[in-house]
Design a protein around this nucleic acid. Structure first.
Lengths: 228, 228
DNA sequence: CGGGATATTGATTGATTTCAATGTGAGTGG
DNA sequence: CCACTCACATTGAAATCAATCAATATCCCG
């Protein structure tokens, strides 16, 4: 849920997601188009690991990617989900602080950071795009931090649903590429609480759940109200 | 609890705090020394507000500053505490996403961001320092996010205490410039839970509480163990 | 020596977790 | 095509951690 290379502006209901409008990252988009090496990753396979050096910037072409951190005793926090068009691999230093894995089978384009940085010295648009990726990441992390620090289970789930709906902005139902465990670890909850909260929202007719991985938002206003 | 202009390296026990070593931000330190305008702020007065444009970068000279966000219904999350030597005002865009206020009477030096950015075009060291401030901020926010998302009250308080001890690295007791309410809002807890947790740590002889605002860490290892 | 804010402690409630079944659905092989 | 299976999701009951409500206690500060 980070910087996307967008082709159109839209309303950004979801506080947890601050996409970068298309025009402003076109230099980066070009770099990916020109220099991007495409890779495939099977579901649950690792793209990079925590503590590995940051060498590439990635763009999701298809599928979905999660970046997460595992605590010593098995607790896990998912920092973000990355969907087609999203950039990931931005990190807070020379080493990854999260692990990236394919949530579903994924195609990913990657570009060497050293190459991008080299180009950015000559191309101020590209330099600006790279800066924008970092600040967008920071903003998303700040929003996620507020969510985890100060919101109820119901609010967290509502924010998540609105965020997913914004991304896959087909008017229709939202297709979730991730499991309940992934959602729980993103929201700082347990799978049971996520499940119960979804049921609760369904009982109030805010959403419909045709299948576990497909959710229709019937009453966005009700969800929005929960996005305190 | 962000980038500091450090004069020496030390062990960085606290995951929530990633100081920038002195050498690497010397260009920025110079800029503050040369161009910094000093301001005083009374306790609890606002330095900048959420949604105001980002115009300055700040350095705490004395006292303490908090950056926080208020939710619509009064819930508050404190993003970070900034102590002497810390840089703050780094934000995720052109507008502040948090409010900055003096926790205690504070002296602050400020430099126009536009000026810094202008200089950074000619001075690659300064440009690197500015990048480092953003990435350090991102890392601190990521760590805080993990804390809020996945840690128990006891773990949160332990991390906070170790962090404060690292900052004010006098071997002696830690002086807290902030109230219990501030600590609670930083840790995503209530004042009662913070208070009870401190009492609990005292009963286990991990800490001593000569006064409410002064804490001696007697058993760091015990606290470290809680920093999962 | 008050007095008011701040902090601690106590009792209780409540939200979320944990533990434990039960249900559902996609894929496989008979 | 259907049963089987295994993973994933939902639901239920009990336990737990932290929040809330309610008194004190303590510390500044005048």
């Amino acid at each position: 849920m980070l910087a996307r290379i967008e082709t159109a502006n839209r309303d950004y209901a979801n506080v947890a997601r601050i996409p970068v409008p298309a025009r402003s990252v076109s230099a980066l988009a070009n770099a990916f188009a020109l220099m991007g090496a495409q890779m495939r990753y099977r579901q649950n396979s690792e793209i990079y690991g925590e503590a590995e050096p940051c060498e590439y910037l990635y763009e999701v072409v298809s599928g979905a990617v999660r970046t997460s951190k595992l605590l010593s005793d098995g607790r896990r926090l998912i920092d973000a989900f990355h969907l087609p068009g999203d950039i990931f691999g931005i990190e807070s230093g020379d080493e990854h602080s999260f692990t990236a894995e394919a949530v579903a089978d994924a195609k990913v384009r990657m570009v060497k950071l050293s190459a991008l940085r080299g180009m950015a010295e000559r191309d101020s648009d590209l330099a600006a795009d790279l800066r924008k990726c970092v600040t967008a990441k920071l903003r998303a992390t700040q929003d996620h931090m507020v969510l985890l620090g100060r919101k109820t289970a119901e609010e967290r789930v509502a924010v998540f649903l609105l965020g997913m709906a914004t991304i896959s902005r087909t008017g229709g139902p939202v297709e979730l590429p991730m499991s309940r465990q992934d959602i729980a670890d993103y929201l700082g909850l347990t799978i049971e609480t996520v499940s119960r909260t979804l049921t609760q929202l369904r009982n109030r007719s805010a959403i419909e759940l045709p299948t576990a991985r497909r959710i229709t938002l019937c009453d966005r206003a009700a969800l929005q109200r929960l996005d305190a």
